[in-house]
């Protein structure tokens, strides 16, 4: 885990196609080994067996390409787990609990991560900065096939890949795109997008997935149904139809703000920048919201002395786990606020 603070997580690099609106693209596959009970029903011995099967298959699949970090979560400290959650490499649920479980992460790029013994035996994910689902899918598909070469998956010709929850059965695929939508938020049009997405059986979630608030105007849109549509079709629907519409909608709202309410737009972004450059105490949510506005100002070309990469880096580094990792000590909330403000001032100086 050491040194992780100097590396920007793949999904926060701030570049890639349509990076002005799309933060990152993610594809996830749920897989289970044949002949072993699902995690919720597995004995400790069976969970350990899944771990060893997964480790053999994943490390074997990486082969000469190497570069897989295997992290035993039972051995990881609470801080290390928090950092993994903040980097979106494991879910909050996976960070909790004491049962045998792990995560394998491709190093150093962290593009591929495989949670072992979460709700399913394997949850593979690949992330990319910007809108790049095809590329993300190509990588996850290859990784999945390489694992399948070494272990047998639970599969039925009718239901496809079998998963603990029947809402994931079939392809087991979850495609999600993290969008930065401050324009739609400021104009109040965001609710229309949410309703439209929900009417198409898509989920709209916050920054940290299920049940989380949309901090920093960041929203994740993902598919809900996994049966009856091929992976390619689901991806095409996202990449060619759904996401481009949302991107255009957001761009229109930002343009409108800039053209018709320029003083308001400038006030929003420069006020945020001013606060970030001078605040002495910063709450986590507040920092995210301000960084969101600064990001909008930077991508609109209104703020010219800060780059997107710095903003992206700060979105990650101001999270509680990362802050403590950088400081190399545990800190309570008031201490973190001081430290967060200091870090932001240094980076935006």
């Amino acid at each position: 885990m050491n040194g992780g603070e100097h590396v920007v997580a793949e999904w926060l690099r701030g570049d890639g196609p349509s990076a002005d609106v799309v933060m990152s693209s993610r594809v996830r596959l749920a897989r289970n080994f044949a002949g072993v009970p699902f995690v919720n029903r597995a004995t400790r011995a069976q969970r350990e067996q899944v771990l060893s099967m997964a480790q053999d298959a994943i490390v074997g699949a990486a082969g000469s390409r190497g570069g897989v970090r295997w992290i035993d979560l039972c051995a990881a400290s609470p801080l290390e787990r928090t950092v993994l959650v903040e980097r979106h490499l494991i879910s909050k649920q996976h960070a909790k609990g004491e049962e045998p479980r792990a995560v394998a992460v491709s190093a150093p790029d962290e593009r591929l991560a495989v949670m072992v013994n979460e709700e399913d035996h394997l949850r593979l994910q690949v992330m990319r900065s910007g809108l790049d689902l095809s590329d993300a899918f190509a990588q996850i598909d290859a990784a999945d096939s390489a694992i399948e070469h070494r272990a047998e998956y639970a599969y039925s010709p009718r239901f496809g890949y079998l998963t603990a929850c029947p809402t994931n059965v079939g392809t087991g695929i979850r495609v999600s795109v993290m969008l930065h939508l401050p324009g739609l938020k400021l104009s109040g049009e965001i609710d229309k997008v949410k309703r439209a997405a929900q009417s198409m059986s898509l989920a709209v979630r916050g920054f940290y997935g299920e049940g989380s608030e949309a901090l920093g105007d960041l929203f994740q849109i993902s598919n809900q149904t996994t049966l009856g549509k091929s992976e390619k079709d689901i991806l095409a629907e996202f990449e060619l139809s759904i996401i481009p519409k949302v991107i255009e909608y957001e761009r229109v709202e930002r343009r409108k703000l800039l053209e018709k309410r320029r003083p308001f737009f400038e006030d929003q972004v420069f006020r945020a920048l001013g606060l970030l450059r001078h605040a002495r105490l910063l709450k986590s949510d507040e920092a995210m919201q301000l960084l969101s506005h600064v990001r909008m100002g930077v991508t609109a070309g209104v703020i010219t002395d800060v780059d997107v990469k710095t903003v992206s880096r700060l979105l990650l580094l101001t999270q509680p786990g990362h802050l403590q990792q950088i400081a190399q000590r545990e800190m309570d909330q008031p201490q973190r606020r001081v430290e967060r403000a200091a870090l932001v001032r240094r980076c935006l100086a």
């Binding site: 010709p157 079939g170 049966l227 009856g228 091929s230 992976e231 390619k232």
Partner: peptide
């Protein structure tokens, strides 16, 4: 949907 379509 009643049947799987996609990767096998």
């Amino acid at each position: 949907a009643t049947h799987h379509v996609g990767k096998t």
